[in-house]
């Protein structure tokens, strides 16, 4: 190539690139624009999230006023439920009340926006009832629960993506590793296969922040997002399948700065920074 006259032609005829000083000047000029773009992007996805969470659980809860329980209520019989969005404000630890007939899962998390390691531990203080594979737990009380834990009935939950399938999760039938949760292991290993409702682990990605995962009164997964500006998420659940994806809602690309691992039936969740 070095002796090809075309190379000399291109070198000679195409205007020389800008100097380092000019490039530095360009960078200095563009830097504020890049920062603004990042801010706008965060604001934009936040707006999307606010809508999604409002529609799902009630805006007050979504904005940090109280616990957030997604995908509650009678939507279980409608198949996969999906929510998507981003939470901008810090939501504190979430405890989801459930009827005694359903597995009571308390999800506790303290997650600053950016930390090297994030752990979410869960316990199951209920009566041990768990969702069976592909089967929903009796949700006779679910409406009450839904109303009591949300500021609206949750009828809007996942409207935009109800028809989406959670196909990824079905392939991730791996061994669970509930290493951080005191009571979590019993839910998947020691009980018979019929009470192990969700294959796992599933590894998904998020950026900053974290999420709590809970089993709702219908056997549905409840996912709460501990917010961080710009964090976006998409959650798809149904009793026998879980698929969690965290996306940049603007670009559609999957985010991957933090590894999010969901193990078993949502009892143990570990979020850790790859570093």
């Amino acid at each position: 190539m070095s002796h090809d006259p075309f190379q000399d032609l291109f070198e000679r005829e195409i205007p020389r690139p800008a100097s380092a000083a000019a490039t530095r000047s360009t960078l200095d000029a563009l830097a504020p624009q890049f920062h603004r773009a990042k801010s706008r992007r965060r604001a934009r996805v936040s707006a999307v999230a606010a809508f999604a969470v409002l529609g799902t659980t009630g805006g007050a809860a979504a904005l940090g006023v109280g616990p957030v329980a997604l995908n509650n209520g009678p939507r279980a019989d409608r198949g996969p439920v999906a929510s998507s969005g981003v939470v901008e404000n810090q939501v504190e630890s979430t405890t989801t009340a459930v009827p005694t007939s359903a597995p009571t899962t308390t999800v506790t998390t303290t997650v600053p926006s950016i930390v090297p390691d994030i752990e979410i531990t869960t316990t199951v203080p209920g009566d041990g009832v768990t969702a069976e594979s592909g089967q929903q737990i009796d949700n006779s009380n679910s409406s009450d629960v839904s109303e009591s834990t949300s500021t609206d009935s949750g009828d809007h939950s996942g409207d935009s993506a109800d028809d989406k399938s959670s196909d990824k999760s079905s392939d991730d039938n791996k061994t669970s590793s509930s290493d951080k949760s005191d009571d979590s292991s019993h839910s998947s290993d020691s009980e018979d296969a019929a009470t192990d409702p969700v294959p796992g682990p599933l590894t998904k990605s998020i950026t900053e922040g974290s999420a709590t995962v809970d089993i709702g009164p219908n056997g549905l997964l409840i996912v709460d997002i501990t917010p961080s500006a710009g964090m976006t998420f998409e959650v798809k659940t149904k009793p026998d399948k879980i698929d969690i994806q965290f996306h940049d809602l603007v670009s559609g690309s999957e985010l991957s700065d933090l590894e999010f691992e969901l193990v078993g039936n949502g009892i143990t969740v570990k979020v850790s920074h790859p570093d």
Binding site: L30, Q33, F34, A37, R41, S253
Partner: peptide, 9 residues
């Protein structure tokens, strides 16, 4: 600019 927004990746 797009690279900047996704620079971590």
């Amino acid at each position: 600019q797009r690279a900047y927004l996704r620079w971590g990746r």
